[in-house]
C-alpha cells in the first residue's frame, strides 16, 4: 500500500496533469490520511474542475472527516454538472438517512439505482431504508405529519404566538432549532400582515423563500396556525407548494382532533 502511494505520488510529480491524482486520493482516503487525500484531490480539481468523479471523491473525504454539510454541498454542486451521477445520489442518500430524512434518502437512492441498476450496494441500501421508513410510519400514526417527507426535520406547525405545535426543524448540522424557528415565524407573520395591510395587497397566502442551502415555504393552514416547510434547494418551488398543500390538509385534520 505504501509503495502504491509512493509510486502514484512519483507519477503525479512527473506529470501534474495526470489523472492519477484520483487513484492516489482514493488510496489516501482509504488509509485514513484525510488531509493528504484532500490536498491531492483539491490540487487535481484545480486542473480538472469538471471531473465529476474527483468532486465525488472530495465529498467522500469530507464525509470521512465528518464535515457532512460541506460534503452535501459538494455532491449537490456535482449534480448540477451531472444530474445522474450515481456516487452523488448514493452519498446524498446516505447523508439524508443520517439526518433521519428517509424520504429524501429514498429519492436519492432510487436515482442512484436508476443510474446503475446492477449496483448491489445501492440495492441493499435502498432495501434497508425502505424497511426503516415503513416501520416509522407504522409506529407513529398520531403524529400530525406521519408519513410526510421531512416530518422530523423540515416540517413545523406553530401557533401565531410563536409556539411549536407539531413537527420539527433540524439543521444540516443536526441542531434541533424548532423552538427558535417557531419564534421567528411569529415575527415574520406580523411583518407580512403589516406589509399586505399597508401596501393594500389583501390577505397573504404564502411566503416562498430561496436560500443558499434550502427552500422554504410558509403558509397558514388555519387562522391560528402557521406551517413551515424546509427542503433542499433541488426541490422546485412548484413541488414545494403542492407538498405544503398536502401538509396543510394534514395539519388541519390534526388541529381538528386536538381542539377540545
Amino acid at each position: 500500500m505504501a509503495d502504491d502511494v509512493k509510486n502514484l505520488t512519483a507519477e503525479l510529480i512527473r506529470d501534474p496533469h495526470s489523472m492519477v491524482f484520483l487513484r492516489l486520493g482514493e488510496l489516501l482516503r482509504t488509509e485514513g490520511q484525510l488531509d493528504a487525500a484532500r490536498k491531492v484531490v483539491l490540487t487535481g480539481l484545480e486542473r480538472h474542475p469538471d471531473m465529476v468523479d474527483a468532486h465525488d471523491l472530495y465529498a467522500r473525504i469530507l464525509v470521512d472527516a465528518n464535515d457532512l454539510d460541506h460534503a452535501r454541498k459538494v455532491w449537490e454542486a456535482l449534480l448540477q454538472i451531472d444530474g445522474r451521477h450515481q456516487g452523488a445520489h448514493k452519498g446524498l442518500g446516505f447523508l439524508h438517512y443520517g439526518r433521519g430524512d428517509l424520504d429524501a434518502a429514498l429519492d436519492h437512492l432510487e436515482l442512484a439505482l436508476a443510474a446503475d441498476p446492477t449496483n448491489q450496494s445501492v440495492v441493499q441500501a435502498l432495501r434497508a431504508v425502505r424497511n426503516v421508513a415503513e416501520s416509522v410510519v407504522a409506529e407513529d400514526p398520531q403524529d400530525a405529519f406521519a408519513g410526510f417527507e421531512g416530518q422530523d426535520r423540515g416540517l413545523l406547525l406553530a401557533d401565531r404566538q410563536g409556539r411549536a405545535l407539531a413537527g420539527r426543524v433540524v439543521t444540516w448540522q443536526g441542531v434541533d432549532s424548532t423552538e427558535v424557528v417557531a419564534a421567528h415565524l411569529a415575527g415574520i407573520t406580523q411583518e407580512m400582515e403589516r406589509a399586505v395591510r399597508m401596501l393594500k395587497l389583501g390577505d397573504w397566502q404564502r411566503l416562498v423563500v430561496e436560500a443558499t442551502d434550502g427552500n422554504v415555504l410558509l403558509t397558514s393552514p388555519s387562522p391560528d396556525s402557521l406551517l413551515l416547510v424546509v427542503r433542499d434547494r433541488d426541490i422546485p418551488a412548484g413541488r414545494l407548494a403542492l407538498f405544503a398543500e398536502r401538509a396543510s390538509d394534514a395539519a388541519r385534520s390534526w388541529l381538528g382532533v386536538q381542539t377540545p
Binding site: 423540515g154 448540522q173 415574520i188 430561496e210 424546509v230
Partner: peptide, 21 residues
C-alpha cells in the same frame, strides 16, 4: 434570521403572495 436558524442558509429570494398582489 429564520432561514439561518432553520439551516436553510443565507436568504436569496423571497416571494410574498397575497390575494391582491
Amino acid at each position: 434570521n429564520a432561514t439561518s436558524a432553520s439551516g436553510a442558509g443565507v436568504l436569496q429570494f423571497l416571494h410574498l403572495q397575497a390575494i391582491s398582489g
